[in-house]
Design a protein around this nucleic acid. Structure first.
Lengths: 347, 347
DNA sequence: GTGAAAGCGCTAACAG
DNA sequence: CTGTTAGCGCTTTCAC
């Protein structure tokens, strides 16, 4: 059968507690017994039982990852493998494991989170998204359960919740200004799901830049889409059918930009000659579009890595003050933007 | 503090064991007590402790997912979110959770798997890749631990291991024949990492088709690359620098194809006019390349879904015979292939 | 139908 | 430095 701590104890002629101490590498055990015990462990092929430990310990050494509902395509964004890679690296360093939510709908996910929390299945949770009025976040907050969010809380509890984010407002503002500097005035905004905080922040950055430049916002230049690929395509149709189509586009996500580029190419609109495009995220494949896209690198890996750092800090010291961390972004200029020179129909 | 089964028992005026039976919905408990107990659970906000259950039960209701090492870029392939979506769906239906490996190197992953197995952290494991001589697979096999692999075992143990795969040999063969029918004779093979079984199968399918058509294989037309994007790019350089460059390419993976398309476009080689391309996987973004790529849909989601079905079957009935399952594939014709008409330099 | 009690494998006082 | 003992919260015989 499975070999337990008792077997090891017997073989090494010590008490079970001593074995336990050796596992924990307690400093109050003599070097000699440690060796004897370790040898016995080796001989018997002993491995500590994870559940027994967790039960006695009240600590699972695992963190729960909560994704947005996997029903829609959001989930397929390579954004996720990349955050997870960041989380994974740090988690592994600190010897934590990762437990994934499996829910397809928001309701399912909420229930799962409850189970994770109440069932003590994980020591802490990372929210891999930030939605505007998120039930899960509220729950975690009320339960005073250790968690961090990637993105930011939308409401007043901002100062009471630990999160890791980019300065999405500023990124969008900068990028809009960049387009403005290139001579564009008809700049459209193709946003993601308005339920996500990042979308709101992007939009505000965009608005601010236009306002500062004294350019009036046009409602028909602002569109939102849920689904990434199709979204990009629909947005293009809507925008390019306007009497005065935009000469530049701010697109929420690189995947969406692939959809935009595809549709534009079908319509024989040339990028960047006819339309300039900037988007966000800088996924691994983003340099492979044609033309290669100009995009904001948000350092996805670091978002995950740092979220894990903060979470584990919180797990270890629950009373420490909430922390926020802003990961720097960087505009990666490639070939989807160009100076606006064409004559346009008068406004 | 946390509310336990005892608290519920007290409140409902029954023994803890009765509460346990109600949780398990035992048929030997009267309807009346069931209701009383459920009410008490509700009132107190009781949630069963996961670790205690697992310990007593010797069952964790969670499956471990083992990915290839996340150090290299393979990990960023949207293939993974999609398999996981399939796994997740089925796991959720059967009320299983998912635990992720975090290792960066093969050695780290191997150690983690040992911990998962010996520490009884998971009830079974899905290998999300299949490598030619895989230590992890051998270990799992020797331990007689429930596991399934996505892909197939390479060696003689094929008949003793449960797996879910595509018929990659046939897919590659068909696709090569398709190119042949379009009049191509100079067909190159741009494979992935030769350590992966899928690469071997693809290559054999390709060879077989050429052989059947009486076309001699040329070594310089067969290249392999580890890294997906860069790989694609390097392959193109090598291939197009040949005195007799190929007129058609079989590319291992859609992501790689993005790299290929990019590089080809930089070299002013037009697809499909100058070169035709077929690749494998049909990722969500694959229809957004320019031109949209012709590719083999391997039904990634189903690979994950069915692997989970088989795994849980194995967990529940460990003595059942190993099973294999082949998921159908389908050629998706888009616009990266064309009939070969140009005059070529004589062979 | 329900209760009492032992035990899953480990940790953590408390002794000594 | 090391052993003894009492749980962690749940399941599961075995009684009744």
């Amino acid at each position: 059968m499975t070999v337990t701590i008792k077997d090891v104890a017997k073989k090494a002629n010590v008490a079970p507690s001593t074995v336990s101490r050796v596992i924990a590498n307690s400093s109050r055990i003599s070097q000699r017994t440690k060796e004897r015990v370790r040898e016995a462990m080796e001989d018997l092929g002993y491995h500590p039982n994870f559940n027994a430990r967790s039960l006695a310990n009240k600590s699972t050494k695992t963190i729960g990852l909560v994704m947005p509902n996997s029903a829609n395509k959001t989930f397929q964004n390579p954004f996720f493998p990349e955050v997870i890679r960041g989380i994974s690296t740090k988690a592994h360093m600190l010897e934590y494991g990762m437990y994934l939510s499996t829910g397809q709908t928001e309701e399912e996910i909420f229930e799962e989170v409850q189970h994770m929390v109440q069932g003590r299945r994980v020591d802490g949770i990372i929210l891999l998204y930030s939605r505007v009025n998120d039930k899960v976040m509220s729950y975690l907050y009320e339960q005073n359960f250790p968690f961090t969010v990637i993105g930011r809380p939308y409401d007043s509890r901002m100062s009471e919740i630990t999160f890791v984010n980019n300065d999405n407002f500023k990124a969008a503002k900068t990028v809009t200004e960049y387009l403005l500097l290139l001579g564009h005035e008809r700049i459209a905004f193709v946003g993601g799901n308005l339920d996500f905080v990042v979308t709101v922040d992007h939009m505000e950055g965009y608005e601010r830049a236009l306002k500062n430049a004294g350019i009036k916002m046009r409602d028909e230049y602002v569109v939102f889409h849920e689904e990434l690929q199709e979204g990009g395509q629909e947005a293009v149709i809507a925008l390019m059918s306007l009497k005065e189509p935009p000469t530049a586009l701010l697109v929420a996500d690189d995947i969406m930009t692939f959809g935009v580029l595809r549709m534009l190419s079908e319509m024989d609109v040339s990028v960047p000659d006819d339309v300039s495009i900037v988007s966000f995220n800088n996924l691994m494949i983003s340099e492979l579009s044609s033309p290669p896209m100009t995009t904001v690198d948000i350092n996805i890996y670091s978002l995950g890595y740092e979220a894990t750092t903060l979470l584990i800090e919180k797990i270890l010291k629950p009373d420490v003050n909430p922390r926020k961390m802003i990961i720097p972004h960087k505009l990666i200029k490639r070939q989807s933007c160009q100076r606006q020179t064409k004559k346009l129909a008068p406004q």
